[in-house]
Design a protein around this nucleic acid. Structure first.
Lengths: 205, 205
DNA sequence: ATTCTTGTACCGACCGGTCAGTCTAGGAGT
DNA sequence: ACTCCTAGACTGACCGGTCGGTACAAGAAT
């Protein structure tokens, strides 16, 4: 639940800012060509840095990939926590969860693209950490669905399976939901919520 | 609409069969480690072939990737055509479309994984061909939704956006829908159809 | 004021290794 | 004898990553 590396940072704010910029720029390259297909030299060119300087900031290529993942997961889990704090009926919470998720996808299209395509490239502890945070988010969704079934607001559905349907519907927008396009995050979140909510509400509700 | 290379094949049936086997085996490797991360030598080992023999069948690494894509798209479009031939109400057609799609994902989990993760690695004509066939399938979905709106069976929704919701919900199952697991394609298709259909049906229908 | 010290930011040549793909030579089937 | 198929040595490019060293700014010591 805390941020990726939190307060253990021993670096200057300037260093952190530069690193963040590198992460963002690199996410764009990875999204455009893929993680393995993007070479260190391309990353250096795009960031206006030599290899030595780049490694001064990122440690390793996989560290850079992990930083991109962390950025997305930080935002997504923060959104989920806001939903928990806001409370409300299961329907309201599910709708807000959708808004928050689509907002992240809309604001970080490159990071999300990389995360959905390249997560298998993470290894060891980094892979385990990522999987755990992803599962944590999925549990939030399942929890809301379970609450709705228990309260009778939703019909008697399988929370796990229904969560997968919900996640697919929303995550898959990474292919076409981009800033500066026709549709905003809210333009999509609303009709999606309407379809999904009508689809799972108890008929007599 | 026709198969990928159709009758232009000048090769023997034995050659075709061997090639198909290579495509299937390689799809497994690509799905496990990624296209760029899987080397030619690994492909040779897995297929029990030297580099010369492998290239006799695949032409190039990207040709192999394209063959995996074609296999999926052949099946998916074939399913869509069966739906068109079967006819029926928009609801019935959409449900059948879902069954067919999940059946392909369930039967070709590796191919689908590769296709959803690595399609940006296709270049030139191969990329254009793939995009066209993908769009063709998406148009099938939009068409059914439009028909449902026109007939009054579905409420007045945006066919394009709703098709994306439907596609996401179904395609995203590639992450967990595998043969030999708890859930069959039909086990998933049915509840998915129920959620989606209730979500888009006209209230008074 | 001036030298010295320290640490951060940075460069790019260079390392061993691996990549996709080619080529030569020959075995197997007809 | 001819075609089809196959192995694996080989090529040149490129890979991720390291390393020796430079530039510079901020203190500290004189």
């Amino acid at each position: 639940m805390p941020r990726a590396d939190a307060s253990t940072s021993t670096r200057s704010p300037k260093w952190e800012a530069r690193r963040d910029a590198i992460v963002d720029t690199s996410a764009r390259l990875f999204a455009a060509s893929g993680y393995h297909a993007t070479g260190l030299n391309e990353l250096c060119d795009a960031n206006d840095l030599g290899k030595g300087a780049l490694y001064h900031y990122i440690g390793s290529k996989e560290g850079l990939l992990a930083a991109i993942h962390d950025r997305v997961m930080d935002e997504v889990l923060l959104g989920a926590e806001r939903v928990v704090e806001a409370g409300g009926t299961p329907s309201a919470r599910l709708a807000m969860l959708g808004e928050e998720l689509l907002d992240v996808i809309h604001r970080y299209p490159d990071h999300v693209w990389v995360f959905l395509h390249e997560f298998p490239a993470l290894t060891g502890e980094r892979a385990a950490n990522f999987r755990e945070r992803r599962r944590e988010y999925e549990r939030h969704v399942e929890e809301v669905l379970r609450a709705g079934v228990d309260s009778g607001e939703f019909r008697d559905l399988d929370p796990w399976l229904t969560a997968r349907a919900w996640l697919g519907m929303h995550n898959y927008t990474y292919l076409w939901l981009k800033p500066g396009q026709r549709l905003s995050a809210r333009d999509v979140a609303e009709p999606f919520a309407q379809v999904f909510m009508d689809g799972i509400r108890r008929p007599g509700g």
